[in-house]
């Protein structure tokens, strides 16, 4: 409890320096909706807290030649109010906006959701489906990583000591593209996903020309399900293709039994949500 330091640097370089100086005891603070709870529960006890909410690059959204760069610490509420982003990536935005409640939305960030590394993190399957690229900065400089490479296991990431997630980049994509995210929770609101599924696709002349599928809460990490994407791409999203993609999702599942859902249940639901999310994404992409 004693001697926790707090800094709120203005630049990423300063933040990285503060993390480096902390010798592994540093923790980034974005919205704090995971970190503060874990500190209270005694799960983590940082030596220094590096608040990144004063860093412009991490708290703003920019359009970049058809794509978007979202600062890792932008709150869900701000993302939800970005009309053009919402139009371009409705699935990513709805996934981020599903996190918690109004109050939580005012604080919680996609960066925090990713770095907390819960397999059930809601925004991550949607970001995986979107093909988001994560920009990371650390003592050795900057690097870009596909979002699905960040999770290493429950609560563990592939970030190197002192590395900070700076932003997410959503690529530009052709007309006729859209995405969707669905999750199953046992109650109507405020719950942790039993299964989450993000689907992003492009439809041209009724044929799905590109697809990506992300699955959450069914394995130690959020999964990119390439076989499901393959089943969808090239098809007209007919029942056979959807069933094949659903089967690929079920095959990818390596879930656990817990109070919220059994292995059999989670596996089955992964397929159902894939079909439904693909249907919504296709509708949004302008099919029919």
């Amino acid at each position: 409890m004693n001697n926790i330091q707090y800094v709120a640097p203005q630049s990423i370089d300063e933040a990285v320096a503060a993390m480096a100086a902390a010798n592994g005891t540093g923790r980034v603070l974005a919205g704090g909706t995971d970190l503060l709870i874990q500190m209270r529960a005694g799960v983590v006890s940082p030596g220094i807290i590096v608040d990144v909410k004063k860093i412009v690059e991490m708290t703003t959204i920019d359009e970049t030649s058809g794509g978007y760069r979202i600062g890792a610490a932008v709150s869900g509420a701000v993302i939800g109010e970005h009309a053009r982003l919402k139009k371009a990536w409705p699935g990513v935005v709805e996934a981020i906006n599903l996190i918690g409640s109004k109050q939580i939305q005012g604080r919680a960030s996609a960066g925090g959701n990713l770095c907390n590394a819960s397999p059930a993190a809601d925004s991550v399957p949607a970001l995986v489906a979107a093909g988001a690229i994560v920009t990371v900065q650390g003592p050795k400089g900057r690097r870009d990583v596909p979002v699905e490479k960040i999770h290493a296991g429950p609560g563990r990431t592939t970030l190197q000591p002192g590395e900070i997630v700076v932003s997410f980049t959503l690529p530009a994509r052709p007309a006729g593209s859209s995405d969707a995210y669905l999750r199953l929770i046992p109650r109507t609101e405020m719950d942790i996903a039993v299964v989450g599924c993000g689907v992003s696709l492009t439809i041209q002349n009724g044929t799905c020309t590109a697809a990506r599928v992300g699955l959450g809460a069914v394995a130690p990490t959020v999964l990119l399900v390439e076989d499901a994407a393959k089943a969808l791409a090239g098809s007209r999203l007919d029942d056979k293709a959807l069933e094949a993609a659903a089967a690929a999702c079920r095959a990818a599942c390596k879930p656990i039994n817990d109070k919220r859902g059994t292995i059999a249940y989670r596996t089955k639901i992964a397929g159902v949500l894939l079909k439904r999310a693909a249907g919504i994404a296709a509708e949004r992409a302008g099919r029919k």
Binding site: P186, R187, T188, E189, M190, I192
Partner: peptide, 25 residues
């Protein structure tokens, strides 16, 4: 309230994991 049969612990002794209805329910 889940009770661990080995030691009587309640692993879901919190509002994140002990579900009560919310307004939307």
């Amino acid at each position: 309230s889940v009770v661990d049969g080995r030691n009587g612990r309640v692993p879901n002794a919190n509002f994140a994991e002990y579900a009560v209805p919310v307004h939307a329910d």
